[in-house]
Design a protein around this nucleic acid. Sequence first.
DNA 1: TTAAAAATAGTAATAATTACTATTTTTAGT
DNA 2: ACTAAAAATAGTAATTATTACTATTTTTAA
Lengths: 127, 127
Amino acid sequence: MNYSRQRESIKEYLMSTKEHPTADIIYQHVREEYPKISLGTVYRNLTLLVEVGEVRKISTGDGTEHYDADTSAHSHYYCRCCHRVMDLEITPSVDQILAASSAGLGTVESANLLFTGVCKECMESQN
Amino acid sequence: MNYSRQRESIKEYLMSTKEHPTADIIYQHVREEYPKISLGTVYRNLTLLVEVGEVRKISTGDGTEHYDADTSAHSHYYCRCCHRVMDLEITPSVDQILAASSAGLGTVESANLLFTGVCKECMESQN
DNA sequence: TTAAAAATAGTAATAATTACTATTTTTAGT
DNA sequence: ACTAAAAATAGTAATTATTACTATTTTTAA
């Protein structure tokens, strides 16, 4: 994998935010630095970065994928109302991961725990 | 929500399988009983059933959603090679769920733990 | 039995993502 | 620095999953 400024910019933006943005949001931001970048480039690089483990993909089921440059073990909280993804410090316990990998299933490359609910802000604006 | 034979057939098929099928697979199966059912009907009913809590949606990030009529607390193992979703008996611990709901985030309606890796069968066929 | 409400089939539309290709950028060796 | 091969890009077209729309059919409750 060769260096590319566009990929660096994508990484930089992702590392600077805690928003767990979608490909399109990332595109909009990177466009400020590289106005000619194409959405395909964003997608291709996100896929690459996920493959080499520098970025995490978060699937909430809301119709589009979210991305996170924080690859440390942590979980997420998804609000089905405002569609935001927030960090949680808790992580799947080692017990659980071991139970899975020793269950004879195969390799376990990642374990993601996703909580879904309605966040405080959304409840206050009574949706 | 009124009764419909198509919705019953969807539920019936989902309850009969452990395959965690996608909307399209469900469509193909229900079509054997109701050849005129449309894919839109499958989608609409799946969305409804998820809303009332009779069906679980499983987002693996493989480009399409998977569905499961087993709503008991359990986790899943996803093989990124053959794209199958398998059941795991382990569930997110009560501690984790409480930690999340008491973290002042909002309501916690569901907690899903998803393991991803390469399953035994796929490793044997050396992919 | 009947009329209102809900659901359906069939089709069109949308939105996210991937594929393709000619051009540009990066890299490794000179 | 110079250059050729390899990799990456922009721009666009194509694909795929999902949703929206509408005229017709089914379900339900009186």
